[in-house]
Nucleic acid binder design. Structure first.
Lengths: 348, 348
DNA sequence: TTGAAAGCGCTAACAC
DNA sequence: GTGTTAGCGCTTTCAA
């Protein structure tokens, strides 16, 4: 493998200094803390920069400052999942928008073959490719977090990753959304309400919010909570489809389903159609309130999921942690419930 | 803004060299071109690396090598578009998978406020944040490409960006797909076939492929080509929706529509439903053949769009260009047509 | 197969 | 407000 070499020697800060007849440090000052330079000096330097078409070498600055001004967004689930999950894209978008406004670059990293993503996060950080990372929770992440802490490396997690985690996370609490959704369904007369819950394995220390909201609302209404009405799915269309089919097979009197994610919601709708039922026979509550879902199925009520804001807040937090050099208290974002075209329960 | 400083001094290659009782260069060799080191020497070095928990500083290596081992993926359309367009995500995923396997990091950059994305691409490259960029075509890109060429910077474009471009692009030719789709529709008896074309402004030098395939098939069958059956849309749901409505209003005898993208396809389907028509009344051909579309609307035939492969090839090309230090001939990927559940034309 | 020494381009002390 | 100098951590040329 031959290596590409720039044909012309690079224009450096020294060239600019020479042309402007000032010292390198002054050029550096103009480039950075501009207010400490006399106005005419700055003019000369700017003119020289312009004339030479000079561009500061970010790598050299990074080496000296021990700062890459880059954030890593690391996802441990295979790129096929990451780039196809609309919620993750929303989180990524939120992070991108914040960190790029704050003057950081964003490196995105997902394992092409699933394993080792967490090691990749460590590597990126320890090699100084990034100043800090945003991590998506997954099995084994608590161990990696310990490494980060021991080595004093910077991270933020998109959810709670170990017992009693107090710092460096931005999580979403689905309790209010699922509580309100369930309560509303009950008020319409629904008694057999299914819950396509999120997967336990993804979130080890925050897994019961959807279930808790659902359970509270049922209990308040004096309705028995049937464990067989709750199924776990991995957020994907496929599991939404399968779990809905088995749910309806076991509970032919089901009148409503609450889904943990929008892709699962699509699977649920398809399953309902494939069973020869009408979408009006079973009231479906979507899980994320994504724009696309509103367009595809405008009649669907939905639990909201502030993914964009979560990503944004995580970006803000990692930047603050990097700048301040210390851990910061975690943040919990809340969910809501949006009603659209719901009707009283239909007997089948 | 205070600056974060590592509490402990960094472990360097010199520390490893000292512990292993070898020279820094030998450690460097172990880290890189491993085969030029005696086996027992390597063992000692590896042991020292392990013991000191040493991690090479990628920034320092980058400075010395004048290589960041990073690729930029730059999109000039606002992050709201980028992260929500499934095709772009597929392209990004393809690029990610290739470059990360090839040992490069991937920086993704989209303007938070639309303008200046192209300048951002130049900046990233000239500042040495990246060794090269992948650029999405857009208005004004031909000027930026000239800058890249003049300055001998590395780039690949996802489509042809200027007249007579021969190198450094990976484009998709939709002609075969739209030809086959149109021909098949004709064979089923369709005569009034709408085309929701892609937007002219996105692709200045490659804009007629969809139209050409469509036109050829019609002409071969001796069917008059009516310009009013062709509408331009910007790939989004909204334009698919609006253009379909106006198309049907003007052509009540329309029996089929070919869409340039899957999001437009969703808009088309919703428009058809909102007009009180059944999805079986108008044969819809999807534009991208995305997995999600197959799940949502399994009955839809589709033109294929090799977005993932396009991104992957672009990743491969930019890596090769960086390694070889010269431009490389452009690549054109082809489209196909997938038939699913099509029926002879229905009279309305 | 290994080592000594120079230097990539920038910034931070410290002096003036 | 400005300049001098050292050095961030690595790789590379050349010699041994």
């Amino acid at each position: 493998m031959s290596t590409f070499v720039y044909s012309k020697p690079m224009t450096t800060l020294y060239d600019v200094a020479k042309l402007a007849k000032v010292s390198p440090k002054t050029v550096s000052r103009v480039l950075n803390e501009s207010h400490l330079v006399a106005d005419d000096t700055r003019q000369r330097v700017m003119a020289a920069i312009e004339k030479l078409d000079y561009h500061p070498n970010a790598i050299a600055a990074s080496l000296k400052r021990n700062r890459s001004n880059t954030i890593g967004f690391v996802v441990p689930y295979g790129s096929d999942f990451v780039f196809q999950d609309p919620n993750m894209m929303e989180q990524l978008r939120g992070t991108h928008d914040y960190v790029s406004t704050a003057g950081f670059e964003l490196i995105i990293s997902a394992p092409v073959h699933k394993k080792d993503a967490l090691q990749e996060a460590l590597r990126l950080t320890q090699n100084r490719n990034v100043d800090g990372v945003i991590l998506y929770p997954s099995f084994g992440i608590d161990q990696i977090i310990k490494d980060f802490q021991t080595k004093n490396l910077r991270y933020v997690t998109l959810g709670i990753c170990y017992d009693q985690q107090k710092n460096n996370f931005v999580e979403v609490d689905q309790t209010p959304g699922s509580y309100l959704a369930t309560k509303y369904l009950i008020s319409l007369g629904h008694r057999r309400i299914g819950l396509l819950n999120k997967p336990y394995s993804f979130f080890m220390f925050n897994r019961d919010d959807l279930l808790n909201g659902y359970t509270s609302a049922l209990q308040e209404a004096g309705i028995e909570v049937q464990p067989s009405l709750v199924r776990e799915g991995d957020f994907t269309f496929e599991e939404g489809y399968e779990k809905t089919k088995s749910l309806i097979a076991e509970h032919p009197d089901l009148t409503a389903v609450i889904c943990a994610s929008d892709p699962m919601t699509y699977g649920t709708i398809r399953a309902i159609q494939d069973l020869g039922l009408n979408i009006n026979d079973i009231q479906v509550v979507a899980g994320d309130n994504l724009p696309l879902t509103q367009k595809l199925f405008p009649q669907l009520s939905s639990i909201t999921n502030p993914s964009y804001e979560q990503g944004r807040q995580a970006g803000k937090m990692i930047v603050a942690i990097i700048n301040e050099g210390r851990e910061l208290p975690g943040i919990t974002l809340n969910t809501e419930f949006v009603v659209r075209n719901m009707r009283p329960v239909v007997k089948r």
